Simulated assay, not measured.
Amino acid sequence: MSKSAILLLLSTLACFAAALLAPPQATLLSNTLGGAGGVFTVLFLAALVVGRRIKFDPLLR
């Protein structure tokens, strides 16, 4: 896993953890953190796909 994928994974986990730990009165904050976590999740998956393409070896034996 690349460094950017690890960073995005940690960002995703931090956003979702903060969204769950936010007080019930802070609905806007919780929704914003959940949305940011979703964006980081998509970027994390994209980083994994890009990392696979770089390491792909099409050599057929």
Rank of each mutant, 00 (worst) to 15 (best):
Asp57Phe: 08
Ala18Cys: 07
Thr41Asn: 10
Pro24Glu: 11
Lys3Ser: 08
Val50Tyr: 13
Met1Arg: 09
Ala5Phe: 01
Ala46Gln: 09
Gln25Gly: 15
Phe44Ala: 15
Thr32Leu: 07
Gly38Lys: 08
Leu20Ile: 02
Val50Lys: 14
Leu28Thr: 14
Phe40Ser: 06
Arg53Tyr: 07
Gly35Asn: 13
Lys3Tyr: 03
Ala14Ile: 11
Ser4Ala: 13
Asp57Glu: 15
Gly51Tyr: 01
Asn31Arg: 09
Ile6Gln: 03
Leu33Gly: 02
Leu33Lys: 02
Val49Arg: 12
Leu43Thr: 08
Gln25Val: 12
Leu21Asn: 02
Phe16Ser: 05
Ser11Gln: 14
Phe44His: 14
Thr41Ala: 13
Ala36Val: 11
Leu60Asp: 06
Lys3Pro: 02
Val42Pro: 07
Ala17Cys: 03
Leu9Lys: 07
Val42Asp: 12
Lys55Pro: 00
Arg61Asn: 10
Pro23Trp: 14
Leu59Pro: 04
Phe40Lys: 01
Leu28Asp: 15
Leu48Arg: 05
Ser30Asn: 11
Arg52Lys: 14
Thr32Ser: 09
Ile6Lys: 05
Val49Gly: 11
Asn31Pro: 00
Gly51Met: 01
Val39Met: 15
Ala19Gly: 08
Phe44Glu: 11
Thr27Glu: 03
Leu8Ser: 01
Leu45Ser: 07
Ile54Leu: 10
Leu13Phe: 15
Ile6Met: 03
Leu45Gln: 12
Met1Glu: 09
Asp57Met: 06
Thr32Pro: 02
Leu8His: 00
Ser4Val: 15
Pro24Ala: 05
Thr32Asp: 08
Gly37Trp: 00
Leu59Cys: 11
Arg61Val: 04
Leu13Asp: 14
Gly51Glu: 13
Phe40Gln: 04
Ile54Val: 09
Ser2Arg: 12
Gly37Ile: 05
Leu7Gln: 10
Ala22Cys: 00
Ser11Pro: 04
Ala47Gly: 07
Leu20Arg: 07
Leu43Lys: 04
Gln25Phe: 13
Phe56His: 14
Ala19Tyr: 03
Ala26Ser: 09
Leu43His: 02
Phe16Pro: 03
Leu33Arg: 01
Pro24Asn: 08
Val42Tyr: 15
Ser2Gln: 05
Thr27Val: 08
Lys3Asn: 09
Leu33Ala: 03
Leu7Asp: 07
Leu48Thr: 04
Phe16Tyr: 09
Gly34Leu: 12
Asn31Ile: 04
Pro24Lys: 03
Thr41Val: 01
Ser4Thr: 15
Val39Thr: 13
Ile54Asn: 06
Cys15Glu: 04
Leu8Cys: 07
Ala26Gln: 12
Gly34Lys: 10
Leu29His: 02
Ser4Arg: 15
Arg53Ile: 08
Ser4Leu: 15
Thr41Gly: 12
Leu28Ala: 15
Val39Gly: 10
Gly38Arg: 08
